[in-house]
Simulated assay, not measured.
Amino acid sequence: MDLGVSHYNTNVQVRTLEALILRLPTTSTPTRSTPKRSKQRRAKRLSDQQVGELTAAYQAGDTVYDLAERFKINRKTVSGILHRAGVQIRGRLTPDQIDEAARLYAAGWSLARVGAMLGTTANTVRARLVERGARTRDTQGRER
């Protein structure tokens, strides 16, 4: 938009724009809404007793999601607490279990069957086998 003034003098531009603003119809004063900022949150620290309860509940079968809701913390925080406490996370496979999974899969077992035997999911088994460089089969048994 050409205001008929040179562009290098900002003072002239500001005065020109202010004059144009004054000529606009005034229906109501625009209110500036300040953006709502979320309240800064502090990380919740669990006491040693709560960590003990959390690990015992996990070992008794509660899921990470259940524990996150119960203790009002993030699921990743629950996983971190369990990891620091030395608790074996369900769904994770040990190197020996991965070896066994590779052997069974090579013998013709399905990923779902291997996962069920190892107490984890087919996706977990597939991911660990792919990490090791194993080639997977499609649903018809053909190599991909």
Rank of each mutant, 00 (worst) to 15 (best):
P35N: 04
E53V: 02
S28Q: 13
V64D: 03
A56L: 11
I81Y: 14
L104T: 03
R92N: 08
K39D: 06
R37A: 10
I81W: 01
P25T: 08
R113V: 00
V78Q: 01
T27M: 05
L46C: 07
R90P: 07
D48L: 04
Q59E: 15
A102S: 14
Q59L: 14
G86V: 00
R37C: 02
A43T: 14
A122G: 06
T34G: 04
N74P: 01
E100W: 04
G86R: 08
L93Y: 07
T121N: 11
K39P: 10
D96P: 11
A85G: 04
D48C: 02
L82S: 06
G115T: 02
D99V: 06
G86I: 03
A57T: 01
W109Y: 12
G61W: 01
V51W: 04
T120F: 00
P25L: 06
V114P: 02
V51K: 14
A43E: 10
R45L: 09
T34K: 10
V78W: 01
A106G: 06
A57L: 13
T77K: 04
G61I: 00
G61E: 00
A43N: 11
K36M: 06
Q50T: 01
Q88G: 01
V64F: 00
R42K: 12
T77L: 02
W109V: 00
V64Y: 01
S47E: 08
S110A: 07
R37V: 10
R32S: 07
Y65F: 06
A106H: 07
S28H: 08
L67C: 10
R92W: 08
W109K: 10
G115E: 10
Q88D: 11
V64G: 11
G80Y: 06
T55Q: 07
M117Q: 15
R92M: 05
K76H: 13
T120H: 05
Q40R: 13
P95Y: 00
A122E: 09
P95W: 00
E100T: 14
A85Y: 03
Q40L: 12
D96K: 15
I98C: 12
R113K: 14
D96Q: 14
E69L: 07
A68S: 15
A68C: 05
A101N: 01
R41T: 14
T27W: 09
A57C: 09
A85R: 10
L54H: 06
A60C: 00
A122M: 00
P30C: 03
S110P: 05
R42E: 08
Q59P: 01
W109S: 15
I73M: 01
L111E: 02
R90N: 05
A102W: 03
T31S: 11
A68Q: 03
V51Q: 08
S38E: 07
Y65A: 15
A57E: 12
R70T: 15
R70L: 04
T31P: 05
P95D: 11
G61S: 08
G91K: 05
P95V: 01
W109Q: 12
H83S: 15
A68H: 01
T31A: 13
